[in-house]
Structure formats: structure tokens, C-alpha cells
Design a protein around this nucleic acid. Structure first.
Lengths: 180, 180
DNA sequence: GTACCATATATCGAAGTGATATATACTTCA
DNA sequence: TGAAGTATATATCACTTCGATATATGGTAC
């Protein structure tokens, strides 16, 4: 799924500026699986404008740069509809945290605990965010995606808490053994 | 976490060829969060060789291209150890499937069910793979990472099965209503 | 008052993917 | 029997995308 398709998808939901598309990828119920940078969004919108998949109207703002509000065209909707039918690529989960964890034996136990705590904190924030945005009225698709995010996030938090406790217990046992 | 660090990490576990590093990213317990292409692995190994972080010995094979078996140097270990201490980037989950699901209202109900079934099948394979590789002796770090993969994958399967049933029921109800 | 954040667009170097090339042997299937 | 596909192995290249930076301005936090 390339950035062009991502932009078209957002524009089927409502007109947006490039800036707003980027924000959608960072916050709200969808942030956990969408991603795009300005460096790809703006060129994609410009290119699709030339190709007639989107149009824009400029809105001048006082003391701010002009907004370019993009809308999807009929041609754009056709292209988007077709791209939804392409076989989806495999899901991927990328995690520096898991990579580092693989080498836990090279790290201080306290450092590992701190990493897990950070991770737990981060995922708790995400659950809050998801709950907040799920309470807003959403399409069945968005409900499905948010629900997916919620159950996976909760599972991760449970797993991390449980593993953190195991490390804690192990180090207590170690201390007792050393004391004895 | 860049590809250089990924390669160094693998090489702290055992000497490898570029081809073997790539395979590690595709199968086994680690495949669910590691990723790298040949186009990044080979240049990274070459560069790090120049910089003295890795060395290699050539092994000529009958009727096959020579193997370049890479080993990490002490300097390489130092660099790797330090890169483990860098603050991990946020985890990201990228999914064409979830993106498409967001636009379920634009798709045929049967198409959606087929997509979910494919997804369930794919994750079932992953659980099998994870179980198989977890039974092999592994470091605590690898156990932790595999466990993470297992609980999240199982949660996803449960969620998808449950949602699939809901769609099924909804369409039954629709049919009855239409019949009435 | 100074640093930082939010709004808004845009560009650019660096990193990485996915496809392809090259070479060879084994397996699968019609 | 032969064609297609898979597996081993390295390498390169066009293209996509990221992350940082530039530009402009006002509000907020400390």
C-alpha cells in the first residue's frame, strides 16, 4: 500500500490538507497502522493533481501559509476502488524494542526493566487514545480496525507486565541465594 | 534500528553469510519483527568489512557461488553493544489488510470474508512456526520475543474469527429479513 | 525572554525495498 | 522428457519513503 493510495483513501472520507493527512497518521484510532511522512505526502498529492486524481482549492489564512485543501475526483475514486482489490501484502510488526530484547543477555537487568516499563507506558497511552476515539461515531470498518488495535495493545501490556514481574522475582531469588 | 545493526546482532549469535541473515528474517521465531532485503544486507556487510567491524572468509563450493562467511570483530562487538543502548524507536504495525478494512463499506461482503479468512490462515501458519522454533533451546531473550509473538498472534486470530462470525450472522439476519 | 510547540508547505540526502541478473542443481508435475 | 519452480548464493539498481531541515508566524510554558 503506497502513500498515493493512503492519501486517496483519506480523501474518500473527507477533504484534507497534506498536513491533516499526516496528523491522521499520528493520532486517533488509526495511528497504530498508518504511516507517512511529509516528504512522501506532498509530492504524492502534487503528482496526483497533475494526473487528475485529486484537485485542490487554496485557502489563504491570516499570518499563516495558504492551506491547500485537496478533494478526490471521480477518476481518483476509480483508481482507489481498484487498488483496494489488490492482494494485501503481509502484515509486518517492526520493533526496536523486541530487537534489543533479543540481546537481553548483553544488557543490565535494570536497563531491561526500564525498557519494558517505557514500553508499557507507551502502550497504555495508546489504549487511552483508542478508547477516546472509539467512542466517537465511526464506520463499521473503523470500528473493526480500532477493535483490532485495542485487543492487540491490551494483550501486549498484559504480556509485558507479566514478564516484568518474572524478571523482578528472578532477581529477588538471586539476591536471597547470594545472601544465604 | 538500521540494517547494519541488524547484521551485527545476528553475527554476535553466530557467523553467517548474507544469505543466512536474510533467511533469519523470513523464517523462525524472529521473522515476525525482523526484516531486511538483499539490497541492504550485502552493501551493509561490505561497508562494515571496510570499516573493520566484520571480517569474512570465502568458502568455495562445488558448482555453487562462493560463500562469504562473515564474523564480527571486537570493534564490531563494541559498536553493537553501544547501539543497543540507543532509545528504541516506537513499535510500528503496518498492515495493508487493516487499511483495506477501513474501507469495508466500499467492498463486497464476500470479499471481506475472504480477506479475513486469508489473514486467519496466515496467522495460524505463524503460530505453528513459532511453536516449532520455541521448542528448540533458546536464550531468555529469544524466549521473551517468541512469547511476545505467540500471544499477540493468538489474540489476532481470536479477534478475526470472532469478527468473521459477526459478519456471517449479520448477513444471515439480512437474508431472513429479505425473505420475510 | 527564550525555548518549544502548532500550523502549513516544500525539498533533499540517505536508507531501504523489490525486482532483476547471474550461475547451478534438485524437485515437481504434466 | 522437458519445463517450471525452488533453493543456494552474491550483487546491483531504480524507485519509494523517511527523517531532517528550511521557511514563516503566533501562542504557550517556564
Amino acid at each position: 500500500m503506497d502513500i498515493r493510495t493512503l492519501c486517496l483513501g483519506v480523501l474518500t472520507l473527507h477533504d484534507s490538507t497534506g498536513y491533516e493527512i499526516k496528523k491522521m497518521c499520528q493520532e486517533g484510532a488509526l495511528c497504530h497502522f498508518l504511516e507517512a511522512s511529509f516528504g512522501s505526502i506532498y509530492p504524492a498529492l502534487n503528482k496526483m493533481c497533475e494526473e487528475g486524481l485529486v484537485t485542490f482549492r487554496s485557502e489563504s489564512q491570516e499570518k499563516r501559509p495558504d492551506k491547500k485543501i485537496y478533494s478526490i475526483t471521480d477518476k481518483g475514486r476509480d483508481v482507489f476502488q481498484k487498488s483496494l482489490l489488490i492482494d494485501p501484502l503481509e502484515d509486518k510488526y517492526r520493533s526496536d524494542f523486541l530487537f534489543i530484547s533479543l540481546f537481553a543477555h548483553l544488557l543490565d537487568k535494570e536497563h531491561m526493566k526500564r525498557l519494558i516499563d517505557q514500553q508499557i507506558e507507551y502502550y497504555r497511552q495508546r489504549v487511552k487514545e483508542l478508547k477516546r476515539s472509539m467512542s466517537e461515531t465511526q464506520s463499521p470498518g473503523a470500528q473493526f480496525v480500532s477493535g483490532f488495535g485495542e485487543v492487540t495493545t491490551k494483550t501486549i501490556i498484559d504480556y509485558l507486565e507479566q514478564q516484568r514481574d518474572l524478571i523482578e522475582q528472578a532477581s529477588c531469588l538471586n539476591n536471597e541465594t547470594e545472601d544465604a
